[in-house]
Simulated scan of single mutants.
Amino acid sequence: MSDNDAQPGSYVEAGEFKRDTNYITTRITADGRDGYPVEAGRYRLVAARACPWANRTLIVRRLLGLEDAISLGLCGPTHDQRSWTFDLDPGGVDPVLGYERLQQAYFARIPDYPRGITVPAIVDVPTKAVVTNDYAQITLDFSTEWTAFHRDGAPDLYPEDRRDEIDEVAELIFRDVNNGVYRCGFAGSQEAYESAYDRLFARLDWLTGRLRGQRYLVGDTITEADVRLFTTLARFDAVYHGHFKCNRHKLSELDVLWAYARDLFHTPGFGDTTDFVQIKQHYYVVHTDINPTKIVPAGPDLSNWWEPHHREQLGGRPFGDGTPPGPPRQAEQVPAEHWLPPQAS
Rank of each mutant, 00 (worst) to 15 (best):
R115T: 08
V227M: 04
P159L: 03
F244W: 02
G92T: 05
K128D: 15
Y99S: 04
L102S: 14
E253I: 04
N291C: 10
T85M: 07
I110D: 15
Y135V: 03
S83N: 05
G299Y: 01
F230W: 05
I70N: 09
P95T: 06
R228P: 06
E168W: 10
P328K: 15
D68F: 05
Y284D: 15
P37H: 08
L66P: 09
P126G: 10
R82G: 10
R228I: 02
P292E: 10
T323H: 03
H249R: 09
A47Y: 13
F201Y: 14
V227W: 01
F230M: 06
G271T: 12
S83L: 08
P342S: 05
W258E: 02
Q343W: 03
W206A: 13
G98P: 09
P308Q: 08
T118G: 03
T293G: 10
A14M: 00
L72R: 09
E67I: 11
V38E: 04
F142M: 03
L257C: 04
V60P: 08
Q313E: 12
R42N: 13
D20F: 00
E16P: 05
A298P: 01
A344S: 06
D237Q: 01
D198L: 09
A54Q: 13
R151K: 12
S10W: 03
Y216G: 12
R109V: 09
T139K: 01
T132N: 06
A261E: 05
T274R: 11
P90Q: 03
R61K: 15
T25F: 00
T85E: 14
N291F: 14
L204C: 11
E168A: 13
S345H: 03
H79R: 06
G98Q: 10
A331M: 06
R33A: 01
F244N: 00
T208P: 08
L88D: 03
S189P: 02
G299N: 05
F270R: 07
P155Q: 00
A154M: 01
R235K: 04
G213M: 13
G185L: 00
D263M: 09
S143W: 00
T78Y: 12
F236H: 11
G76F: 07
N133D: 12
G299H: 01
P328G: 15
F142P: 00
L264R: 09
I28S: 02
K294T: 15
E39Y: 11
Y283E: 12
R311C: 08
P114T: 09
D301S: 13
D89M: 08
E168T: 10
G242W: 00
V256L: 05
V296A: 11
K245R: 14
T26W: 02
E160K: 05
E307Q: 15
D5K: 01
T132C: 06
T85P: 03
D87F: 05
H282I: 13
S143F: 01
Q333R: 15
V169R: 03
G116L: 02
L217S: 11
L64T: 01
N4F: 04
D161A: 03
A136F: 06
G41E: 12
Q103C: 08
T25P: 00
